[in-house]
Simulated scan of single mutants.
Amino acid sequence: MIAVLVIDMQNAFFEEPVLQRRQEEVVAACNSLTSAAREAGAKVLLVGTEHERDKSTWSLNMLDDDQGFIFRGSDQARFVPGLVTADIPQMVKTRDSAFMGTDLGMRLRNWEVETVILAGVSAHNCIAQTAADAFAHNLRLIYAAEAIATENPEAAEAVLRVLTREYRQRVLPLDEIKALFGSGPAGAGA
């Protein structure tokens, strides 16, 4: 079984000018990916970051700077306009990796997932950390090329180069990913 995880497609991250310029195209790519996945019977999960104002969920850099963001219920925490969210399960995280401190591993086991496809932002942070943890959970991983963005292309390229080489993770265009969905029940054997 294949699952698509759409990571951090939230207003806060698209305040960054580099990501803001790519917002429409990344949203369209994410929507195309999730639509194809759902049509094929694959699982889709929207993952967002949220923090509490009392600092209890803040990461070390937030504590060091005494500045939090993406507070629960804020406009920053909302998914970006245009992203299809209706009837798609959602999960909240407080760290870069979607596995850290969440029930993601259990959800994927319950869904009998063997391959995870990642989309969203940012390639060098939350996408990369989630990918590394997917490897630690013995999950195959594919990066949806057009559906991933970053505000730091150099760091993203370096991190993805290591992850694809060392962890045998693949970066594929949407057309090839969509073809995987057609290779049996919800992409079995991807």
Score class of each variant (00 low, 15 high):
11 N>E: 14
134 A>T: 11
75 D>N: 03
184 G>F: 11
175 D>S: 14
123 A>S: 15
149 A>S: 15
18 V>L: 13
85 T>E: 09
9 M>I: 05
183 S>F: 10
89 P>C: 01
105 G>W: 01
129 Q>C: 12
155 A>Y: 12
4 V>G: 06
187 G>T: 10
53 R>N: 00
90 Q>M: 12
84 V>I: 08
80 V>H: 01
115 T>V: 05
15 E>T: 13
89 P>L: 04
110 N>Y: 05
4 V>L: 10
5 L>D: 06
10 Q>E: 12
70 I>E: 05
13 F>A: 03
175 D>V: 12
56 S>H: 03
32 S>N: 12
52 E>V: 00
125 N>W: 01
67 Q>P: 00
23 Q>K: 15
187 G>L: 06
97 S>H: 03
38 R>Q: 15
19 L>V: 10
98 A>R: 08
143 Y>M: 13
164 T>H: 08
46 L>P: 10
119 A>H: 01
137 H>I: 01
133 D>R: 04
116 V>C: 01
17 P>C: 07
156 A>G: 09
8 D>G: 02
158 A>L: 13
96 D>F: 13
35 S>M: 07
22 R>V: 03
185 P>E: 14
104 L>N: 04
28 A>W: 05
171 V>D: 02
177 I>R: 09
169 Q>P: 09
40 A>I: 09
76 Q>T: 00
129 Q>P: 00
147 A>T: 10
135 F>W: 14
186 A>S: 15
61 N>I: 05
184 G>W: 11
148 I>T: 08
138 N>T: 13
188 A>Q: 12
32 S>R: 15
119 A>T: 07
94 T>A: 10
